[in-house]
Simulated scan of single mutants.
Amino acid sequence: MAADLEDDSEAVRLLVARQFASLSWNEGRTADWDGFSADFLPGAMLFPAARPVASRTVPEFVARMKHLSTTTLPALEEEVRGMRVTVFGNVAVAAVACAVVENHAAAEETVEMMLLVKNEGRWRIAAQAWDKAGPDNPVPDSLLGSPRPDRVGI
């Protein structure tokens, strides 16, 4: 049972890392839009940091980001700075501290939360939401430099 939890936690961590890598691009490299989309369940929703809150489907989000990548956002780099993964059976939550660099400017920090489900042996994202960090909303210390997953076993 412990080995299964470790395997599942590692699979979620790899999925998260793949997500951030696929949604990074610059003048010499395009994003992996198909790879990004493939890790979501059909009907999955994304909730960007902008307020008032507005949900986006994965196709809507990808279409917007594709457009931005050819207009006002020719470079976007995302880097995982820390992560907490909690797995219970076929459900998991990943909390991710991320550095985001837009158009080679100074890095901004975000925290992203993902709800994942496992079906037919594969983890996929059911929902994802994020918010920007700042002086009044710092990234929790518990996320920074903590790449190992939390394990829940009952």
Rank of each mutant, 00 (worst) to 15 (best):
D131H: 08
W33C: 02
F88Q: 14
P149T: 05
A21P: 03
T110M: 07
L41G: 00
G89E: 06
D8V: 06
A49G: 01
A21R: 09
T57D: 03
V53Y: 09
N26I: 01
M45E: 11
P48R: 02
S146V: 08
A126S: 11
V85T: 03
G153M: 13
L23D: 04
A21C: 06
E60M: 07
S9V: 10
G153N: 10
V87D: 00
A129V: 10
N137H: 13
D150F: 13
L68Y: 08
F20R: 07
L144P: 00
M83P: 03
E112L: 09
A3H: 15
N90Y: 05
L46H: 05
S55W: 10
E27K: 06
E10G: 10
T70E: 11
V58N: 05
L143W: 06
E77A: 11
V96F: 00
A44Y: 08
E77K: 14
K118I: 00
G28Q: 14
N137R: 14
V100H: 01
P135C: 05
D131P: 01
R13S: 15
E120V: 13
G145R: 02
L41R: 08
V93N: 12
R29F: 02
H104Y: 14
M45I: 14
A106N: 15
S9C: 15
F88H: 14
V80Y: 00
R124E: 11
V93E: 09
T57P: 05
W130A: 06
A133L: 03
T110A: 10
A92L: 01
E109P: 05
V58Y: 05
R124P: 00
N137W: 08
V93W: 01
A95Q: 13
D34Q: 13
A11P: 02
D4F: 10
N119E: 15
E108W: 10
N103E: 04
E109R: 09
R13G: 15
S22F: 06
L23E: 05
A54F: 09
V87G: 04
A75R: 09
V80E: 06
A95D: 13
G121D: 04
V111I: 03
R148P: 00
M1G: 15
A105F: 08
A95C: 08
E77W: 06
V12M: 12
C98T: 10
K66M: 06
A44D: 02
S142Q: 09
M114A: 07
S9L: 09
I154C: 09
A17C: 08
V93T: 13
V58L: 07
F88T: 10
A17V: 07
P52G: 03
A17P: 06
R51K: 15
M65F: 10
H104R: 15
T86I: 11
